[in-house]
Every structure is written in C-alpha cells, then in structure tokens.
Simulated scan of single mutants.
Amino acid sequence: MNAVVLRAGWRRGVIELRQSFTNGPDVVSHLLWPVLMLVVMYFLRESSFGASGLLLGTLALPSVLGMNAALGLVSLSQQLTYEREDGTLLRAKATPHGIQSYLVGKVVSVSGGLLADLAIFLVPGLLIVKGLDPGSASWAALLWVLALGMVATLPIGAVLGSVFPSARGQGLLQLPVIGMIAISGIFYPITALPEWVQWIAQVFPFYWLGLGMRSALLPDAAVAVEIGQSWRHLETAGVLVAWAVLGLLLAPVVLRGMARKESGSSVAERRDKALRRAM
C-alpha cells in the first residue's frame, strides 16, 4: 500500500467523519449509544458487587469503553455491506487503487467516530460514577489497549462485511455479538459466571478490551474480582495481537475476492431484490 493510497484514503475518511457530525441521523447515532450507557451507569452507580465493596458502576464504566471500541467491527461490517449494495464499492473498484483507498477511508472514519463516541461517554461518566480517579488512571495503558483493540477488531469487521450478501443479513451478526458481550464481564464481573462460560469469553476480544480498560482506570483493589486476581497485561496484549494478525491476514484476501465479484449486474440484481422486498 503506497503513500498515494494512504493519502487518498485519509482524505476520504476525514470527509466522511466530518459529514457524520453534520448529518442529523448520524449525529443521533453518535449520541444515542453513549447516552443509553450513561443512563445504565447512573442506575448502577450505587449497586455493589457482593462483599467486595466495589460499585458495579465503577467496574462497568471501563468495560463499556472496551465494548464500544470492539463494536467498531459491527459498524464497519454494516457500512461495507450497505455500500456494496448501493454501488459505492463498484465505483471504487473502477478507479486505480480504489478499493484500497476506500478501505483506508472506512478505517479512518470508523476509528474517528469511535473515539468521539468514547469521549462523549467517558467525560460525563467520570462525573456520574464514583470510585474513579482520573488523576491516578493510567492513560498510557488505556491508549495502547484502545489502539490495539481497534486493530484487532476492525479488520474482522471488514471480513464480515465482505461475507454477508446483503444488509438484511447483518442482523445475524448482531445476535452473536450481543451474546459475546453478555458473557464478557461488561456489566457484571466475569468471575460470577460459570467457569466454562469464562473460557468461552476469553477466546474473543470483547473480554480482553474490557479487562485492559479496567486495568487502566480502576484502583488496584479492583483486581480482586478478576480471574486470577490479576490484570494479565501480557495475556491481553497477546490475545489482541492474535486477533489483529488473523484479521490483517484474512481481510485482504476476502476483500479482493469480494471486489472481483462486484459488477453492474450484481448491483442491479441486489437493488431489484430490495425493491421487491419493499413492495
């Protein structure tokens, strides 16, 4: 991937990101999830976890940050599928290095939107939730976990966006994602779940992103409710790197195969099917 592709992709991504904050529905989308999570944090702020003395809101806020970062894979997958249906990918395919610059632009716009959404959630969340001291937080740890987490999840989102044949199929993606979130210790410590569920959760990046965020923002005493009573930084980095390598290896192969299949007739066929469903 050369500098021309990177510059073109960067410009495209910045334009899309800027447009997402000037378009009404997109602005609502940016605000809706953070606001909903802040409402959840408000109701959890006084609830404690067992005899640990730790508040559920304190434990959940960093985990929600990790979850939101991981959900970037869903956003990227959806956008790829929608824009394949409306012919955007076909137009990109018709220009030199168009698919590559398109993907770079998508990563830039989705990553930028994620960072904005996380800031919208984190700043008021620190005021709502007790037990978090921004002055003692390890912001450097938060940044490396966030950066590595996005590298681990966004390529997988590109793969999934290439695999699903239509936007309607995206509903099949959201169900397992919600299931993984439910067992990943986001809203309740994972140690309260059966051991076999804990093992399943640790296969996927959602748990590790949440763990990494908790290690950066929570006081040292909070490690008592984690598996092995350890923040497991090496394991966090290892699992996220493994997912990043898997995604970066698979994404180019799958995307090239998807791009080769794109044609004017395939776009027209998908539009006809969409119109028949709407009638």
Results as ranks from 00 to 15, higher is better:
Gly50Leu: 04
Thr191Gly: 01
Gly157Asn: 07
Tyr207Gly: 02
Tyr207Lys: 03
Ala201Trp: 05
Leu17Cys: 05
Tyr82Thr: 03
Ser109Glu: 13
Met180Lys: 06
Pro124Ser: 03
Gly161Phe: 09
Lys93Cys: 05
Glu46Asp: 14
Gly53Asp: 07
Gly171Ala: 06
Pro252Phe: 10
Gly169Ser: 10
Ala237Asn: 02
Gln78Pro: 00
Asn2His: 11
Asp220Arg: 10
Ala140Val: 10
Gly169Asn: 15
Val145Lys: 00
Gly66Phe: 04
Gly24Asp: 03
Phe187Pro: 00
Phe206Ser: 01
Gly87Met: 10
Ala251Cys: 09
Gly72Cys: 02
Ala268Leu: 12
Met150Ser: 00
Gly257Glu: 14
Pro194Arg: 02
Leu193Ser: 06
Gly98Trp: 11
Lys261Tyr: 08
Ala141Pro: 00
Ala70Val: 14
Lys130Asp: 15
Pro176Ile: 06
Leu17Lys: 07
Arg84Gly: 10
Val163Ser: 10
Pro252Thr: 09
Leu65Phe: 04
Leu31Ile: 09
Tyr188Val: 06
Pro124Gln: 08
Leu31Tyr: 05
Ser101Val: 00
Gly169Tyr: 14
Pro34Ser: 03
Leu217Gln: 12
Asp272Glu: 15
Leu65Ala: 03
Val64Asn: 03
Leu175Phe: 11
Val107Ile: 14
Ala70Cys: 11
Leu240Gly: 02
Leu148Pro: 00
Ala251Tyr: 07
Ala158Asp: 06
Asp272Gln: 14
Ala274Phe: 03
Val177His: 05
Trp139Tyr: 07
Ser138Asp: 15
Ala244Arg: 03
Gln198Glu: 12
Leu126Arg: 04
Gly105Val: 07
Leu127Ser: 07
Ala278Pro: 00
Ala224Phe: 08
Ser265Tyr: 10
Asp220Trp: 04
Ala141Val: 02
Arg276Val: 04
Pro194Thr: 02
Gly212Gln: 13
His233Lys: 06
Trp33Ala: 02
Arg271Lys: 10
Ala274Cys: 00
Gly149Glu: 12
Asp220Val: 07
Tyr188Gln: 07
Leu127Thr: 05
His233Thr: 04
Val104Gln: 08
Asp117Thr: 14
Val27Tyr: 11
Val123Gln: 03
Gly247Pro: 12
Asp117Val: 04
Gly157Glu: 09
Glu46Thr: 06
Arg168Glu: 14
Gly171Tyr: 09
Val14Arg: 14
Ile181Gly: 03
Ile227Gly: 01
Gln78Phe: 08
Ile227Gln: 14
Thr191Glu: 15
Leu193Met: 13
Trp139Ala: 01
Lys273Met: 14
Val254Phe: 09
Ala147Thr: 12
Arg270Trp: 04
Leu240Phe: 09
Ser75Arg: 09
Glu16Gly: 01
Thr191Asn: 11
Arg214Asp: 11
Ser111Asn: 03
Gln19Leu: 12
Ser52Lys: 07
Val159Asn: 08
Ala60Ile: 00
Leu248His: 12
Trp33Met: 08
Gly185Trp: 08
Asn23Arg: 09
Ser20Arg: 08
Asn2Trp: 05
Ser20Asp: 13
Leu218Glu: 13
Glu85Gly: 05
Leu143Tyr: 04
Met258His: 14
Thr236Cys: 04
Gly185Asp: 05
